[in-house]
Simulated assay, not measured.
Amino acid sequence: MMIVRLGYVAMSMELKNASPSKTMTFAQFQKIEDREAAIRKLERIALENLENTLRLLKHNVFNDIHFYRLTSRLIPLANHEELSGWDYMRPLKGKLREIGEFVRKHDLRVDFHPDHFVVLNSPKPDVLINSLRTLKLHYMLLKGMKIDPTHRCVLHVGGNYKETETSLERFVTNWSEVPSPIQQLIMLENDDTSFTLEDTLFLCEKLGIPLVFDYHHHLAHHREASWEDQWDRVTTTWKGSPLPIKMHISSPKSQKEFRHHADYVDADMFFRFLNGIKGSVPQIDCMIEAKQKDEALFTLIREIEKREEVEIIDGSSFYIK
């Protein structure tokens, strides 16, 4: 039997007043005449985000949820060019340690998925530099939590620039500019418009990067191609990872808006995937990318409980027979 664990992204629909992504724009920052006071306000917002992150993790443990995506917006303006001298990590060390201790105590899997502006195959040097700076922030947050940063950050391949082969080659070239600790941080995901499963596998196999398979993206972009024929290659990219294989699951909002994520996950669609891979790996962690966040997870597990081919483990995990 194969273990399936469900996770969700960043926000809870059930836990109130617990946003981990509160922010301040640079325009708002500039309106505060005392710069030091403005920086202290940024730090208070960041600490509140971290406190809400801890609340969310406690909510997850209470509900037997073992897999969670941290928001990349924990520290507002962390990498803004006008705040280059701000040591934002210093006031956060205690709270980061507390989060890390909780994660380790309850054996939770946490990771990140930075925003679309992190582009490692960009032809523009400044975009690559800014992308590496953002990835370093994620690395430092994980180190501050004393969590092994290996394979904790999902990225898309980047921009296609109307030439797939050249864009893939540029990723390989730019990879040599990525420091080794940051390389170890990264997983790659197939996307819904530019880089197919086959394209992403090319990079993952060449550079030794785990591939996070997004089933919905594959159907949106390349549905005529069989993902099943490539599954062994996907699992092989995870052979050197300390973590179980992970994938993304979501459902189309509608046939007309197929690429957009629905509020919830279609259980039949999910099980078409699971039945295609059962027995191929001992465990798979499935990150739900649905608008209703944890409520989508709760709804899905209630539907899964009714299926004969599963044995429920707890509030977010089950065996598929």
Results as ranks from 00 to 15, higher is better:
Thr235Pro: 05
Arg97Gln: 12
Pro179Cys: 07
Gly315Met: 07
Glu14Asn: 15
Glu36Tyr: 02
Leu142Ser: 08
Ile129Pro: 00
Cys286Ala: 13
Tyr161Cys: 09
Thr23Phe: 07
Ile284Met: 01
Thr237Val: 03
Ser131Cys: 05
Leu142Phe: 06
Asp294Gly: 00
Arg223Cys: 12
Leu155Asp: 10
Val281Lys: 09
Gln230Arg: 15
Arg44Gln: 13
Val61His: 09
Gly240Ala: 10
Trp238Asn: 00
Met13Lys: 15
His113Met: 12
Asp263Arg: 00
Ile320Trp: 03
Leu155Val: 04
Thr235Lys: 04
Ser176Val: 02
Phe62Ser: 10
Met11Pro: 02
Ser194His: 13
Leu132Cys: 11
Met89Ile: 13
Leu243Ile: 15
Leu142Tyr: 00
Met187Asn: 04
Phe112Gly: 04
His217Trp: 11
Asn60Ala: 13
Glu257Lys: 15
Ser241Gly: 05
Asn275Trp: 12
Asn174Ala: 04
Thr200Leu: 10
Tyr264Ala: 05
Leu50Ala: 06
Ala267Gln: 13
Lys256Ile: 15
Ser180Ile: 14
Asp263Pro: 10
Leu188Met: 10
Phe298Met: 11
Glu177Leu: 14
Phe318Trp: 10
His59Lys: 08
Asn275Tyr: 10
Leu128Lys: 09
Asp199Phe: 06
Val4Leu: 08
His151Asp: 05
Tyr139Ile: 04
Val157Thr: 11
Ile304Tyr: 00
Arg40Met: 08
Asp268Lys: 08
Lys124Tyr: 12
Phe26Trp: 03
Met1Arg: 12
Ser251Leu: 01
Ala18Pro: 00
Ser316Glu: 08
Val127Glu: 00
Lys239Met: 02
Gln28Ala: 14
Glu303Gly: 12
Asp148Arg: 06
Phe171Leu: 04
Glu257Cys: 07
Ile313Glu: 11
Ser122Asp: 07
Gly158Lys: 06
Leu56Gly: 09
His80Glu: 08
Asp232Asn: 11
Val157His: 00
Thr299Glu: 13
Val61Cys: 03
Thr71His: 08
Leu185Tyr: 02
Leu300Met: 07
Ser250Tyr: 06
Asp126Asn: 14
Glu257Gln: 13
Ile284Thr: 00
Phe117Arg: 04
Glu308Met: 09
Ser241Asp: 06
Arg5Cys: 13
Lys278Cys: 09
Arg73Thr: 00
Leu15Pro: 01
Ile288Lys: 09
Glu311Arg: 08
Glu36His: 12
Ala46Pro: 04
Thr164Ser: 02
Gln28Thr: 12
Leu15Tyr: 01
Asn174Tyr: 07
Leu300Asp: 12
Ile32Glu: 03
Leu274Ala: 14
Glu189Val: 05
Glu257Tyr: 14
Leu47Arg: 10
Lys31Leu: 11
Phe202Leu: 11
Lys31Phe: 03
Glu311Trp: 01
Ser280Thr: 15
Phe202Arg: 15
Tyr68Thr: 06
Glu295Gly: 03
Ser84Ile: 14
Asp294His: 02
Ala296Tyr: 05
Phe112Arg: 05
Gln292Asp: 09
Ser122Met: 07
Ala46Met: 06
Gln28Val: 06
Gln30Ala: 12
Thr164Val: 14
Val118Met: 05
Asn160Arg: 14
Arg170Cys: 04
Asp192Lys: 00
His80Lys: 10
Thr193Tyr: 14
Thr25Gln: 06
Arg73Ser: 11
Ile39Asp: 04
Asp126Ser: 15
Arg55Cys: 06
Ser176Tyr: 01
Ile288Ser: 07
Phe195Ser: 02
Thr200Ser: 13
Asp111Thr: 12
